[in-house]
Computed example of a mutant assay.
Amino acid sequence: MSAVILTAEQYQDLVNRLEQVNKKLEEQSKPSHETFLDNQEFIQLMHISKRTAQTWRDEGKISFSQIGSKIYYKMKDVEVLLDKNYNKAFKNKR
Rank of each mutant, 00 (worst) to 15 (best):
L37D: 05
L37V: 06
L37M: 08
L37N: 03
D38E: 11
D38K: 08
D38Q: 10
D38T: 06
D38W: 01
D38I: 00
N39C: 14
N39L: 12
N39H: 01
N39R: 06
N39S: 14
Q40D: 11
Q40V: 12
Q40H: 11
Q40Y: 11
E41G: 06
E41Y: 00
F42K: 01
F42V: 05
F42L: 13
F42R: 05
F42G: 09
F42Y: 12
F42D: 12
F42P: 01
F42I: 07
I43P: 00
Q44M: 15
L45A: 07
L45E: 01
L45C: 08
L45T: 04
M46F: 05
M46W: 06
M46Y: 13
M46A: 11
M46N: 04
M46E: 02
H47L: 11
H47I: 02
H47P: 00
H47Q: 03
I48A: 08
I48C: 10
I48Q: 07
S49C: 14
S49N: 12
S49R: 00
K50E: 14
K50T: 07
K50L: 09
K50Y: 07
K50R: 13
K50S: 15
R51L: 14
R51Y: 04
R51E: 13
R51F: 13
T52A: 08
T52E: 08
T52L: 05
T52N: 08
A53C: 11
A53L: 06
Q54Y: 10
Q54E: 12
Q54F: 06
Q54N: 13
Q54P: 09
T55G: 14
T55E: 14
W56D: 02
W56A: 04
W56H: 06
W56R: 04
W56G: 04
R57N: 10
R57K: 07
R57M: 13
D58G: 06
D58V: 09
D58C: 03
D58R: 05
E59L: 12
E59D: 14
E59F: 05
G60Q: 13
G60A: 13
G60H: 11
G60W: 05
G60C: 08
G60V: 01
G60F: 07
G60S: 03
K61M: 14
K61T: 05
K61G: 07
K61W: 07
K61L: 14
I62K: 04
I62L: 15
I62V: 10
I62H: 03
I62R: 02
I62Y: 09
S63D: 05
S63C: 02
S63L: 03
F64N: 10
F64L: 09
F64T: 07
F64G: 10
F64P: 02
S65Q: 09
S65P: 00
S65F: 08
S65T: 08
S65R: 15
S65C: 02
S65W: 03
S65E: 13
S65M: 06
Q66R: 11
Q66V: 07
Q66F: 04
Q66C: 08
Q66I: 12
Q66S: 11
I67N: 08
I67D: 10
I67Q: 11
I67C: 15
I67P: 03
I67S: 12
G68A: 04
G68M: 02
G68R: 02
G68D: 03
G68V: 02
G68H: 03
S69I: 11
S69C: 13
S69L: 15
S69V: 10
S69M: 11
S69T: 10
K70R: 01
K70G: 00
K70H: 01
